[in-house]
């Protein structure tokens, strides 16, 4: 599958790209300091952006911690440049966009609450990175609503811990995400049958985990449920909870 990953110079972009070893990955970032095979592109409304998405089957658009800067530059990136990217992508008939967001948009909710994708996010006004990430979600959502491209927003847990799930668990953080789990979800999101629009919460399962993963379970079978103990009835897929 030919995939375009944005903000490829960032740590998040590199983590995402590192999870896609089985795919033909094209990396891009804004023109300042692009190196090592990363296509420099400012995501303007121009032919360069059209060429960037030509032949691409899926875009992974790094929403949170993809870019750095002040509020103006972040809002510009996640509103205008995201609009340009998705318009070019929809004109090129790219099938889907995976938008990398963050569960920090829901961190105002106390840990005892059963926060799923059905809980409204509450972005802060004084954290431009989170506010801009939220705006990026909404821009993507409107492209999905107009049925121009499918969008799955993956809201990732934090901190992101390199390696296996056990390393995330060992941090003691209740919303931690191991990069192995992220890779599992990303690859599933690229291949799974998805709806026009969906929010998906993604963190590593852990004792006392903060966010429920109903959408990830339904769409990507993540996390793999533990084996049914002998003698217990097997849960039917899609059964009411």
């Amino acid at each position: 599958m030919k995939i375009l990953v944005t903000s490829a110079m960032s740590a998040m972009g590199r983590t995402v790209a590192g999870a896609l070893k089985k795919h033909d990955v094209k990396l891009t970032d804004l023109t300042g300091g692009c190196t090592g095979g990363i296509v420099a592109n400012n995501l303007n409304h121009d032919a360069e952006t059209d060429r960037l998405v030509d032949g691409v089957e899926a875009i992974i658009h790094t929403g949170y911690e993809g870019q750095e800067g002040d509020a103006s530059s972040l809002l510009d990136y996640y509103s205008r440049r995201t609009y340009n990217l998705l318009l070019a992508a929809s004109n090129a008939r790219v099938d889907r966009c995976i938008y990398i967001s963050t569960l920090k948009l829901l961190q105002d909710y106390e840990e005892n609450l059963t926060v799923t994708e059905r809980w409204r996010s509450h972005p802060p006004s004084n954290d431009p990175a989170l506010l801009a990430c939220h705006i990026g979600e909404l821009v993507c959502k409107e492209f999905a609503r107009d049925r121009l491209i499918k969008v799955a927003t993956l809201r990732l847990g934090w901190p992101i811990v390199t390696g296996q799930r056990s390393k995330a668990t060992a941090t003691g953080e209740t919303a931690a995400l191991a990069t192995d789990d992220l890779a599992t979800v990303l690859n599933a999101a690229l291949g799974a049958k998805i709806e026009q629009w969906q929010d998906v919460h993604v963190q590593s399962p852990a004792p006392g985990q903060r966010y429920l993963l109903h959408a990830a379970q339904k769409l990507f079978s993540f996390p793999v449920p533990p084996p049914t103990p002998p003698g217990q009835p097997v849960a039917r897929k899609g059964a009411r909870r």
């Binding site: 205008r80 609009y83 006004s125 004084n126 939220h134 821009v139 409107e142 609503r145 107009d146």
Partner: peptide
Amino acid sequence: PQPGTRLYALSKAMGQEICRVFAERH
């Protein structure tokens, strides 16, 4: 809000969303 993807509508809608967030927080 369901502005859709028309430039004028969506750019104004995102401005409005920023206003909403600030009103929620201040």
